[in-house]
Nucleic acid binder design. Structure first.
Length: 884
RNA sequence: GGGCGGUUAGCUCAGCGGAAGAGCGCCUGCCUUACACGCAGGAUGGCGCGGGUUCGAAUCCCCCACCGCCCACCA
């Protein structure tokens, strides 16, 4: 059997993935009789390309799914994509613009058809890319938010909420993106702190008097002012309340009103009121019955109401207004002012508060149960601190603007009648104008109807994802079996956007929490911890990473970097290390398989196992136990780290090395060693498979006696390994000490040197049986190994101490000049040892410590002290020997 | 303006009440017949500052200082 020296991921990944998929290992089976374990994928945008965020969730979710599948669960990982309203419309819109086609010219229907074309062409790209990472999704259940059945779920949700009065329509101040031409929810507005200017403007009295001075960051909105407000208890302005001032540039008289919303300390203590362009003023306007003058249109340009400024862009208008005010001497001051400006999440344009008629979802009745579900622990949020963030947000949550002035998405199933004027949301006493089926005539008067042109916020459909994908509102077999799902795993950046809303919707529509555990991973950043962005040029393409390092290394890196509560700094140098790890495993496998051939070694009688055999088997059990525990706690980094160290630093560095002695031994020893080598490798492949599915499956194919695929092999169950007796560790100490001495003294590694070992107690003596001497000989490259008695005298013999052993290593040539250096080295060591010893001695002399510390801690410290005391004694003895 | 993280080896980060850790990097030797994507060894730390609690603090509490994030309708 030929096995290449290096593991080349590119040569196996595609083949192995095809095997898994072709053989149907990813398909969930409702009839399996196994307990279900379900994760629904956070659906990527249809038009999206794989980025590191996707790589992260694919890695973590696939680890969970593969682990549970191997544990015997009916694991379902349900994949799919999101239509991503604004994002997709923008992408396709831009693409069409490149061809010189404007969306508006195309018209709604033709445009939407173009988007569908786009989706048919490119929509599967992202899903194919997920496969490259080894994602074991059940592709037979792939869903898309605009699929007919999912659209039906969306419609059902809307209709139910409307009928219950939880969805309403009205004219309110909303966040408006002038570039995207649509309303946005609060969450879609990103606030960016910026250094702005605070201008103070004087509004004179009608009689030409002083009037009042107001402060504003947005002078262009003054054109729409319909009042000035002061605090009711502000002495400075008491006489002005109830009178009017003249709005400059517009020459309109506007009243001065008293309102407690005014902060007397800020600015001049007088606030201009623009009910049409500021959320606070909008409310104030309602309180005081002020007219709303719209001066900025939905396109971001000044309206006819802006008089001489009509037609100007809002920022041009700002400049023009300031110029005019200055010319008229009414601009009294400017100062630097820090404030947060809202930007559109999608296009980054400055969001405009605008009055418009939109659909809203009343949130409080939904939020309350969602809050309780988390408070009462029916849903667990991990890491815990996100729980607090969730609860805080849920307490302050506002109604959700769900309508979007877009074409791509779920059209709102609301109608209005042209004949009788009845309209959904406004004048629909029997709530007939929103329904599951499209209306062709007015249910009130039979007149002609038309449908609301708006579509729903993408997140409105996303919030139904955990159940709409399983068939809801139908009681399908999948829905009954796989809902509620088990784990929701996603990035914390969409906790509010998505997770919170799924919880609300799940409880509302299914009466059940949609999942039990929410695990929120950190965001992937560059190697310096900076956010990845195109402008910084530090974006890492996961596909390139897979090409360079292999999917296994990419996954392992992401997993081992995933510490709950922390963002991930993706360092490619580190990834090199895990590619090396995959290769290390590959070569360990190669060694074992070459030793065993095609034959499955016979299971040895327990009495034939060596101390190393028992040790590595126990370590394997312990590792399996810890890995299971870590995964249950979503501590991916810990599980990965445990495996890395077990495989490399215990199995490879020690067991495989020492096995070479056993493989040269008598037949039973040889057979037992082979057996242990192979069974530990078997355990490693199983444990590592969720993390590195490709290498492990590739090696599994070559394992003698294997049945089936690793992807469905049982995961090592928690076991209780026998307590370690420490004998292996003591031999390791001896071997390491000898190696250290060798390296320090620069003794040729290729040459065997005689070693003399003096055990310091009975158990140490018992340890040094014939096989131990062979092992020390092989691993420390010393020979012969003599045991017992006093050390041979003379300067040829280099002294050392390791745990319960004193030893001497013979050097090839006598180098008289170096003798003093050896003494100096030993003296230095003695000093360090004595210092440590004194530290512990002092601690143990402290009566408070001895009395109050737990007994096991005192005992441990005492053992450490004794160890140091012995070492000090031995080194002293060595020094005396040399002196003599 | 509220809230939340972080500050530990040159770099990226674990540890979160009882001998300071990992990976990478660095230094010294080695092509020892699984692996040079390797082997063996080594160096490197006032655990942000200042207080407190404790027999004992990187770990718990308080204060401060930087760095970062989230939420928020103070013009």
């Amino acid at each position: 059997m030929e096995i290449p020296k290096q593991f080349v991921p590119g040569e196996v990944e595609e083949r192995i993935y095809a095997l898994w998929e072709g053989e149907g290992h990813f398909r969930a089976d409702p009839a399996s009789g196994k307990p279900p374990y379900v994760i629904v994928i956070p659906p990527p945008n249809v038009t999206g390309a794989l980025h590191t965020g996707h790589a992260m969730f694919v890695t973590l979710q696939d680890i969970l799914i593969r682990w549970r599948r191997m544990q015997g669960y009916d694991a379902l990982w349900l994949p799919g994509t999101d239509h991503a309203g604004i994002a997709t419309q923008m992408v396709v819109g831009k693409e069409l613009e490149k061809q010189g086609i404007r969306r508006e010219d195309l018209g709604r229907e033709a445009f939407v058809e173009k988007v569908w074309e786009w989706r048919r062409e490119k929509g599967d790209t992202i899903l194919r890319q997920l496969r490259r990472l080894g994602a074991s999704c059940d592709w037979s259940r792939t869903r898309f938010t605009l699929d007919p059945d999912l659209s039906r779920a969306v419609r059902k949700a809307f209709v139910d909420l409307y009928r219950e009065g939880l969805i309403y329509r009205g004219e309110y101040m909303v966040n408006w993106c002038p570039r995207c031409g649509t309303a946005l929810s609060d969450l879609e507005v990103e606030h960016a702190e910026s250094r702005g200017t605070l201008w103070t403007i004087r509004y004179p009295s009608p009689d030409g008097g002083e009037g009042v001075t107001v402060a504003t960051t947005r002078p262009e909105t003054m054109l729409g002012d319909t009042a000035v407000a002061v605090h009711p208890e502000d002495e400075r302005y008491r006489s002005l309340v109830g009178r009017t001032v003249v709005l400059p540039l517009m020459n309109r008289e506007i009243p001065v009103v008293a309102d407690a919303m005014v902060d007397r300390e800020f600015g001049t203590g007088a606030v201009k009121i623009t009910p049409a362009h500021d959320p606070n003023d909008f409310e104030a306007g309602k309180r005081h019955g002020l007219p709303r003058v719209v001066v900025i249109g939905l396109d971001g340009k000044m309206t006819a109401e802006a008089g001489p400024f009509a037609g100007l862009d809002r920022y041009e208008a700002r400049k023009a207004v300031l110029k005019r005010l200055e010319a008229e001497g009414l601009l009294v001051g400017t100062s630097v002012h820090q404030n947060a400006v809202g930007h559109c999440q999608r296009c980054d344009a400055v969001v405009e508060p605008a009055v418009s008629t939109q659909w809203f979802l009343r949130i409080e009745p939904l939020a309350e149960p969602a809050r309780r579900a988390v408070e009462e622990g029916r849903i667990r949020i991990i890491p815990d601190h996100w729980r607090k963030v969730y609860l805080n947000w849920m307490r302050e949550i506002h109604d959700w603007c769900i309508s979007r002035q877009l074409w791509w998405g779920h059209r709102i199933p609301a109608f209005s009648c042209k004949a009788c004027g009845k309209a959904a949301g406004e004048n629909d006493p029997e709530r007939l104008l929103v329904s599951m089926e499209d209306l062709s005539a007015c249910p009130y008067c039979g007149g002609p109807v038309e449908q609301d042109p708006d579509v729903l916020d993408t997140w409105f459909s996303s919030q139904l994802w955990p159940f709409s994908t399983l068939g809801w509102p139908e009681e399908t077999e999948d829905f009954r079996r796989y809902y509620p799902t088990t784990v929701m795993e996603t990035g914390y950046d969409i906790l509010f956007f998505w997770v919170a809303r799924m919880i609300m919707a799940g409880l509302k529509f299914t009466g059940q929490a949609p999942f039990k555990d929410v695990f929120l991973h950190g965001l992937v950043r560059d190697e310096k911890g900076r956010k990845m962005s195109k402008t910084l040029g530090n974006v890492v393409d996961p596909l390139e990473l897979i090409d360079t390092y292999g999917a296994d290394a990419v996954r392992f890196t992401l997993a081992i970097l995933c510490v709950p509560g922390t963002d991930v700094a993706l360092d490619t140098r580190r990834m090199e290390g895990y590619r090396a790890f995959a290769n290390k495993l590959w070569n360990a496998g190669r060694f074992v398989l070459l030793q065993c051939g095609e034959r499955l070694p016979e299971e040895p009688h327990p009495s034939l196992l060596s101390r190393w055999d028992r040790w590595i088997l126990a370590e394997l059990d312990r590792t399996a136990q810890e890995v299971n525990r870590a995964l249950e706690e979503f501590k991916f980094y810990e599980a990965a780290d445990l495996l890395y160290h077990f495989v490399w630093h215990r199995y490879c560095d020690w067991y495989v090395e020492v096995s070479k002695v056993g493989l040269n031994g008598p037949p039973e020893r040889k057979e037992a060693t082979r057996y242990v080598l192979l069974s530990v490798l078997d355990g490693i492949l199983r444990l590592l498979h969720p993390f590195m599915p490709f290498v492990t499956e590739a090696l599994w194919e070559k394992m003698p006696g294997r049945t089936g695929r690793l992807v469905e092999a049982p995961f090592p169950a928690p076991a209780s390994p026998p307590p370690p007796d420490g004998s292996v560790e003591r031999l390791m100490d001896l071997i390491t000490a000898v190696r250290t001495l060798r390296t320090e003294k620069n003794l040729p590694p290729g040459r065997m040197l005689p070693l003399h070992v003096a055990p310091l107690d009975e158990s140490a003596a018992a340890l040094l049986d014939e096989s131990a001497r062979e092992e020390v000989s092989a691993l420390a490259r010393v020979s012969p190994v003599r045991v017992g008695g006093e050390a041979p005298p003379g300067e040829r013999w280099l002294p050392g101490v390791a745990g319960a052993f004193r030893f001497h290593l013979e050097r090839p040539e006598v180098d008289g000049a170096a003798a003093a250096a050896e003494t100096a080295r030993l003296e230095g060591e003695l000093k360090k040892l004595a210092a440590e010893r004194d530290k512990f001695a002092a601690k143990l002399r402290n009566p408070a410590f001895v009395e109050k510390a737990p007994p096991e801690v005192v005992a441990k410290n005492r053992a450490i002290l004794e160890d140091y005391e012995r070492k000090v004694r031995e080194v002293e003895a060595l020094l005396r020997n040399r002196g003599a």
